[in-house]
Design a protein around this nucleic acid. Sequence first.
DNA 1: CAGGAGTACGGTACTCCGTACCAAGGAAAG
DNA 2: CTTTCCTTGGTACGGAGTACCGTACTCCTG
Lengths: 259, 259
Amino acid sequence: MSETTSPSASTAPSTSSSTSSSASARDRLRAAAFRLFEEQGFEATTTGEIAAAAGVGRTTFFRAFGTKEDVVFPDHDEVLARVNARLDAALDRVTLTDVTEATGLVLGHYLAEGDLARARYRLIRQVSSLRDREAASTVRYQRVFRDALRGWTGEEAGSDLRAELLAGAVVAGHNHILRAWLRSEETGPEVDARARRDFAAAMATVASGLVAGPADGAGGGTGGGTGGGAGDGSTVVVLRSGQDPAALLPALRQALGLE
Amino acid sequence: MSETTSPSASTAPSTSSSTSSSASARDRLRAAAFRLFEEQGFEATTTGEIAAAAGVGRTTFFRAFGTKEDVVFPDHDEVLARVNARLDAALDRVTLTDVTEATGLVLGHYLAEGDLARARYRLIRQVSSLRDREAASTVRYQRVFRDALRGWTGEEAGSDLRAELLAGAVVAGHNHILRAWLRSEETGPEVDARARRDFAAAMATVASGLVAGPADGAGGGTGGGTGGGAGDGSTVVVLRSGQDPAALLPALRQALGLE
DNA sequence: CAGGAGTACGGTACTCCGTACCAAGGAAAG
DNA sequence: CTTTCCTTGGTACGGAGTACCGTACTCCTG
């Protein structure tokens, strides 16, 4: 993105007029770009057209955005910075809860964007280079979460499988909820609220372990459910009792008829 | 990729010589490309240079590959097809085991490539457009696995969170192991064997639930490990029992002292 | 045999993105 | 006032990717 103008412009109060004009050119460019993309598609819209529609030169376009694709992804660095700030604000070490709250900030950002986020989603789906960029931004979030979760899982770089799995699940869950919201034909505060609730439930599922199994697995009163893979002989017990698992093993084994 | 030549060439036996020459030009181009990429970098290598080094015209380069990036990702569609074939071969419905075995095919493909895979990895790390492409291919695998796992989780399209979480975890685990292998300074059969073992262990971790927790969570002898999320009181215990989970509930409750 | 259809290939021209550079204009500082 | 700094637009260029044409070759049919 434009690294040459915004920082110096924002640190020089006497150039506040040029700050506003610089932001204004960027905003005009972005608005023009999204309008033209919507009308005629990303690939068929040239940077020259965008610049002309915004009343600036093409050089100014490339001053405001590094590449044509950057127009579509305006806020990634900013959101990532907020995620990092939230993680940095963790009291001792970053917990899974910290990570899910940081992830919630990402979701909240989309919800706040509303129709713009939806328009962007429609656009991205049609252009492979944009889809690639989107996928890469997902990978970046996952990496940040993995690194942050190492303290919690007690792992170190290079040997952090659990952190990786958790980060992968958190991101997958988030994206799942986000996609449903982006695709929703309805809009409004209750749709947003439902997305938040679904997100919280998804994160709870991650936190409780990925209890998987066929549909006939009985959801039991043990919190996360019990399930047996079809014929694989596994019974998964999720305890929310705080009791020492090792002390319970004999009783559990007996209950399962294992001894 | 080249959709115009291979099908007709392979259906016309009398043009088998042109088939082999076509594949040969493609192979020569790829070999030349990888050599030049290694020597001078991806961006600094032009398609014209690659073509010249392969002894063909630039037009032929673009007949063989849709884009310059396609050179670097030769086998994605083929590996994805093998993954799909494995999933299609599942007896009744695709289980988590089927998915992890299909994922193992992907890993096996990289292991079989050996140094080529490692060279590609080094290249991809240096070029953002290649990283984006790589990330997108990961997303495609995850989507295939999610769709395949719905039967097992008993979910339907649009309401498939558990399948999504599992797919996310499987892919994250795979990538974790693969990355470690790609980065390894050592090579050889024992390194490959260790990657396979690590992969199997990662998949077992996924299958047993994402057992998370701080380092002082007790890793027990229960196979998948036990752990308590920090403060959330969850403990996941995996035991092998073929009995109906619903029938076990009363005994489990009693063993847990819940009734 | 000749002619036509199909295929593969190389070269050329072109558009567009992205980079580099220069000149002009305006604002700020001394 | 002059000088310096900043912003902007225009131009030129290289490279990726597209489109097209001409050439050469093979194969089939009349």
